[in-house]
Design a protein around this nucleic acid. Structure first.
Lengths: 170, 170
DNA sequence: TATAATTGTTAGGCTATCCTAACTCTGGCG
DNA sequence: CGCCAGAGTTAGGATAGCCTAACAATTATA
């Protein structure tokens, strides 16, 4: 029923996070959470308000409507699933957070579901502790080995934009 | 050294695929590969040409420069890794392709590396055949059970845009 | 070879997202 | 109570990607 852009979802999730954190969500806080400028937040909030997903009171703050909130919670839940998975396969903290943010909006339900299954399965299956140990050993054995391709390609921040994460071609 | 947008990478990969497939890459083929219109291709190709990643001869076709080609190959390699992973965890064909396309551009090298390790590990580890069987059983046991949240949210195609995949809140 | 069909380009627009600069509130303090 | 700093908003732009319609080049065909 809702056709939300990735960004719109990002804003909803950020509003939820800020609200949970501080009890309310002001323009400035949301802007900080998403690393954008306040006017950008006002703009998106206006759209979300028009869609009935948030309520915006000028000079006061933003509140999620029930619908907005339930969408935000779903996004957050996805995020947690993905983060759990990435942690499981030993992706470093920082990368895990960033990548969970990306995947939570973009991946198909099928993929997310299977990842969730995998996470649950690993948490359930008897042999998995052992398996994870062997996986860690495997990763260690790979460390230091050059990848098939690994020229590095630092990400250049476009002028006037907030800093972006580094990337390499891997 | 290169700061390419996700889309620019998409175009490079598409040009590589079309070239491998047909021996050359014309505007029309690239457009078909990416489900966009020819003028859109011309526009991006012009940019990639300006960056020295492709050579565009009007009315003839597009060729990858050595640099463009090596970038395209890296993207393709990532794609294969991700696809292998998704297949491993039993994500259905269609979703696996789409999601590999998304992740190949967006995920950090760390995540992709760990996913690659996982794929290699599963291919190596003795206990993994068994494990995969158990995982399949686990997935089957889940099937039919309603998820934590599963209201469906069909994706509405914006007017004048190519069809997009369906989504649900999962 | 001339003309039709096909393919490629140009021109001109549109939307989403983000920004800066300037203006408007609001709330605390003298 | 009036004033000002800081937060919020409005106005006005920029850029990336896409699109359609119209025009140009090429290719195929009669």
């Amino acid at each position: 029923m809702r056709n939300l852009s990735r960004k719109a979802e990002d804003y909803l999730e950020a509003i939820l996070n800020v609200s949970l954190d501080k009890g309310y969500a002001k323009t400035r806080d949301i802007a900080a959470e998403l690393s954008v400028r306040p006017p950008t937040v006002v703009e998106m909030v206006r759209k979300l308000d028009a869609m009935g997903l948030v309520t915006h009171r000028r000079y006061e703050g933003v509140t999620l409507t029930p619908e907005g909130r339930s969408i935000a919670e779903v996004i957050k839940y996805r995020h947690e699933t993905l983060r759990a998975f990435l942690t499981l396969i030993r992706v470093p903290e920082g990368a895990a957070s960033r990548d969970a943010c990306i995947m939570e909006h973009e991946l198909s339900p099928e993929t997310i579901e299977q990842i969730r299954h995998l996470v649950e399965f690993i948490g359930t299956d008897a042999g998995s502790t052992d398996l994870l140990c062997r996986f860690e050993g495997f990763c260690r054995s790979k460390r230091g080995q050059a990848g098939l391709v690994d020229r590095s390609r630092p990400f250049v921040t476009p002028p006037g934009r907030p800093a972006a994460r580094g990337r390499s071609l891997l």
